[in-house]
Design a protein around this nucleic acid. Structure first.
Lengths: 136, 136
DNA sequence: CGGAATCCGAGTCGATACTG
DNA sequence: CAGTATCGACTCGGATTCCG
């Protein structure tokens, strides 16, 4: 059992690899809000995360996009922002109950996508071939 | 009991009101593809539909947008296009098995949204008030 | 560290007009 | 009927720069 190291509840470190290079999530036909929203929600599922902590698994996201998505999620009531005082600046984002609820259907959608991944890819390739490749 | 009137299987007329003026679908936090995609999929759930038939419940959609969404859905393998010969031109769109499968998670997402509709609205209003209304 | 401001290109959406 | 072509308004997301 890993021991709590920050005084709070157990904090599982964010897995930098939780979204592999060919991560399905951004390609999933279901999207919540903008491009990064679903990814962010999933990053938050195990507890509050700091801004810079979120940037790691969200490979390639810019500060601007992260900030934007976060503010949008906050505005829509899926995420709450908490600012802590101290020597170093610390801001944390966490799911609201509403945001947590969203994970349900989101997971269902992700699972469906995973199950039909090959079909989705095949169908897309077939569609692209028929549309862009005028016969060879 | 309504009788089949076109020789094909029973064709339930598309309910022009299936999306009421405050239809949740476009506002649902889950989106598939572009703005109209989910709506189109749902329009197709009871069988093939003609182009102009689709325009009715999709109040306000332009031919261009419908055509675009349809082509995208076709390219991604969710919809098939069929052209029939005859005196009058007739083109029909139908769900593929893949597209039909999509209805599962889509329905789940829609139901979740309906269940949490009030919370979603409240949260959004609260968020907007805090962001755009600097106190009055 | 946690952003905000600015610039910019790409994609989307609707309105309008035209076509086979 | 079933589209396509074009245009302008707007939004999205990335890169870059600057700030407390």
């Amino acid at each position: 059992m890993t021991k709590p190291q920050a005084g709070r509840a157990e904090r599982v470190p964010l897995d930098p690899e939780m979204f592999d290079p060919v991560c399905p999530s951004p390609l999933v036909p279901f999207r919540v809000g903008d491009k990064w929203a679903t990814l962010i929600l999933r990053c938050l599922q195990d507890g509050p995360r700091r801004f810079s902590e979120l940037k790691v698994p969200l490979r390639g996201i810019t500060a601007k996009s992260l900030s934007q998505s976060l503010r949008r999620l906050e505005r829509d009531g899926f995420v709450v922002r908490a600012e802590y005082e101290g020597a170093e600046r610390r801001v944390e984002y966490a799911l609201t109950p509403l945001g947590r609820g969203l994970l349900g259907p989101l997971d269902a959608a992700c699972e469906w996508t995973r199950e039909h991944w090959d079909e989705l890819i095949d169908a897309q390739e077939a569609g692209l071939a028929g549309a862009a490749d005028p016969g060879d």
